[in-house]
Design a protein around this nucleic acid. Structure first.
Ligand SMILES: [Mn+2]
Ligand SMILES: [Mn+2]
Ligand SMILES: [Mn+2]
Ligand SMILES: [Mn+2]
Lengths: 216, 216
DNA sequence: TAAAAAATTTAGACACATCTAAAAAAATAT
DNA sequence: ATATTTTTTTAGATGTGTCTAAATTTTTTA
């Protein structure tokens, strides 16, 4: 139906356009690791198919049919990630690249059965919400640890940075999804934070605190 | 590493070259639903990569590295088919097209873990052998029902035709993998055969008998 | 608000995988 | 053995997705 490249563009436009409004050519070029001129070419094609709203020089937004396709790809990505972690015992830092390929397997019947097989999970291994077969999903109300103050309690429920390096670091520190934390100290000098876990105390940099998301 | 088209050519060369020797351009064109001239182009590319032995006008054979790749794709295809049937409850006539896509997911670590997850199955839903992670496999010693005579007993263990139409017909008749049959009559006029199953008697055409494989 | 900088689009090219039509080689028939 | 048919390859073209370099538009700065 749509090519692999088209699907990847739609997914990227969706991710970049989440909060803000229209997505720029350069933003897409950066995320997709390609050149602005290539992006322009593809935007024309997607506009022709009425999957995006495109006005030259003004960036793009998804049409509702474009958004539907994007959400479906994200659904597949996250369900496959869940499968890889829960059924095949991969670690959360190992699954993203595989899911990038698997999200393009076309059958919806397959993905709906996979969903059922796994008990209709609501969140993927990184805490991101999994759209249901109608594209509906609800994100947690997440805040970066860095935005919380002294003596605040929270539950680790997501990450902003999905890089393997960051996820491996969190693993090593025991900062995994579901863990309860309490902020016991904030170092004024560099804004690093001291966290109390169930079993130990650890210190994290501002950088880490910015990318670690909790539910209060 | 190799493109999707290259993988499909290698797989096709493998399947066509099983018993006989070299595979012709036209055979490949027919199986891959493409034109002979396109095949020639691709054969040059695969020869350049030393995945096939190609002499113009003489057909091709796989090199050992080409064969290794082909067998790995077949391993993936059959393991995904097994997964779809055993874990997601698809029927044996529904899985081939999905597996055609899934066989190109690149990670070998993934497929090895999938293999383990399913308990290292030896045969796919159609009775075809699944190569292990070293590419080793052993096919059953299969014979078409049509080659057996009166009063012979056998166990249905494979099919020659993999079309959905044929598989659905077999399902409806209760002629599924593992079923024990006994040939009770052969009609001289059209070579159709009467089979005794555990619970019933059915008659099949010569065409069906040719495509249904048993272990004696 | 005019000049400079940045972002975006256009123009022209290329690799890949495919096609049709024509040429060449191999196999078959007379 | 020659002619005919079949098979295969070559030549030239197309669509997709990408690229670099140049032109254009928008934004920022002075
Ligand atoms: Mn991911
Ligand atoms: Mn994820
Ligand atoms: Mn199959
Ligand atoms: Mn099969």
């Amino acid at each position: 139906m749509n090519t692999l490249a088209e699907e990847n563009y739609l997914k990227s436009i969706y991710h970049l356009g989440l909060n803000n409004e229209s997505v720029s050519t350069n933003q897409l070029a950066a995320l997709l690791n390609t050149k602005a001129s290539s992006v322009t070419d593809m935007l024309k094609k997607l506009a022709e198919k009425e999957l995006i709203n495109y006005t030259p020089y003004q960036g793009v937004t998804l049409t509702s049919s474009g958004e539907k396709i994007a959400i479906n790809i994200i659904r597949k990505h996250r369900l496959w990630e869940f499968f890889l972690v829960e059924k095949l015992n991969f670690k959360w830092d190992e699954v993203h690249e595989m899911a990038e390929e698997m999200e393009h397997i076309s059958s919806n019947e397959l993905i709906d059965r996979l969903d059922k097989f796994m008990g209709f999970p609501k969140y993927d291994p990184h805490g991101d919400p999994i759209p249901d077969c109608n594209g509906k999903f609800k994100a947690h109300d997440l805040k970066p640890v860095s935005s919380a103050g002294i003596d605040i309690n929270g539950v680790i429920s997501g990450v902003r940075d999905h890089s393997a390096a960051f996820l491996q670091y969190l693993d090593k520190q025991g900062l995994t999804i579901g863990k309860k934390i309490r902020i016991t100290e904030i170092i004024e000098f560099d804004h690093s934070m001291v966290l109390q876990l169930d079993d130990k105390t650890i210190q994290i940099s501002r950088e880490v605190a910015n990318n670690l998301l909790i539910i209060l």
